[in-house]
């Protein structure tokens, strides 16, 4: 029983790590651009597929960095050419635009790489289980958690200490003032969008190594990531981090006692949080 609980707890941690990567990117874009990026899960898939293409040429480790970077470039171009044009308009338009983009990217992936799933080969030396009793612990999964932890720490350090990170944080609080101080807000939003997409691409490569690639692999991560943001509190990245881990672990532990309910429990948590503490774990008072 202990082994089963540990197994599920660790699974929850892995799923939670993916939720964290996806929801942090979503949250960054939402906070600064006020846009819900429906296509986020499809950028994730795109990142995985790009890694699939790159690995035969440059190997796994460089791909882990290059594929997300390429995804971020594509995201940057889409932001500059389309999404940036509808900032300031009614939210309905950004929702519809990214929704349409999600359809297009998903179908493009299906067209290029096929309907069936593809395997993403992980180097042999990290895919072996570490021990017989704790068969669920293999180096890849530990490494995955470590990569996510490092990226999250890197992201927070970047936002805290770099000049651009400071501008992003200031922009979340008051974009007009930041603009009045002479900062190119348009460019800031584009770069911020690219950062969010980079995280999605990274999640895509990591998820590909874990569960393989398919055109709608991001769909199952996208909606729980919304919940992570809502539960953690809108506007707070630390909140999003906590929210992602909470729902990941909660879903995995529910799977021990009642597997059918593990998907629903995420949304039940959201309902309870909205009822008891509408602003979420760490959301600002008054932030809607």
């Amino acid at each position: 029983m202990l082994q089963l609980i540990l197994f599920n707890l660790f699974n929850g941690l892995i799923i939670g790590a993916f939720y964290v990567l996806v929801s942090l990117g979503l949250s960054m874009i939402l906070n600064l651009s006020n846009v819900i990026n429906f296509a986020h899960g499809n950028f994730l898939a795109l990142g995985g597929y790009l890694a699939y293409v790159l690995i035969p040429y440059i190997g796994f480790w460089p791909s882990l960095l290059v594929a997300p970077l390429l995804t971020a470039v594509i995201g940057y171009l889409i932001e500059v050419s389309m999404i940036s044009r509808i900032y300031g308009r009614d939210p309905i338009y950004s929702l519809l635009l990214t929704f349409g983009l999600a359809f297009m990217i998903q179908d493009a992936c299906r067209y290029i790489w096929g309907v069936n799933g593809l395997p993403l080969t992980v180097p042999n030396n990290i895919s072996q289980p570490l021990s017989q009793t704790y068969f669920f612990l293999n180096a890849y999964r530990l490494f995955l958690v470590a990569i996510v932890a490092v990226s999250v720490l890197g992201l927070f350090a970047f936002l805290r200490y770099s000049r651009m990170g400071m501008r992003i944080r200031a922009g979340i609080l008051d974009l007009d003032t930041v603009s009045a101080l002479g900062i190119n807000v348009r460019r800031l939003r584009s770069l911020n969008f690219a950062f969010g997409i980079f995280l999605a691409g990274l999640a895509g490569v990591l998820a590909g190594g874990q569960i393989g690639l398919n055109p709608n692999m991001g769909d199952n991560l996208l909606l729980p990531s919304f919940v992570a943001i809502i539960v953690g509190g809108m506007g707070s990245l630390v909140g999003t981090l906590l929210g992602g881990l909470t729902i990941g672990v909660a879903a995995a532990l529910t799977a021990v006692v009642w597997p059918a309910a593990s998907d629903v429990v995420v949304y039940i948590i959201m309902a309870v949080v909205l009822l008891v503490r509408p602003r979420g774990f760490l959301g600002e008072e008054g932030m809607q």
Partner: peptide, 28 residues
């Protein structure tokens, strides 16, 4: 549960709640 939210956040919460009913229909 959601009347206090506005704009993009209202949309986001409605999207998330929709999933409850989807999963119930899917799993039951």
């Amino acid at each position: 549960l959601i009347t206090k939210r506005r704009g993009i956040y209202f949309a986001m919460v409605t999207i998330a709640f929709q999933q409850i009913f989807y999963f119930i229909a899917y799993k039951w």
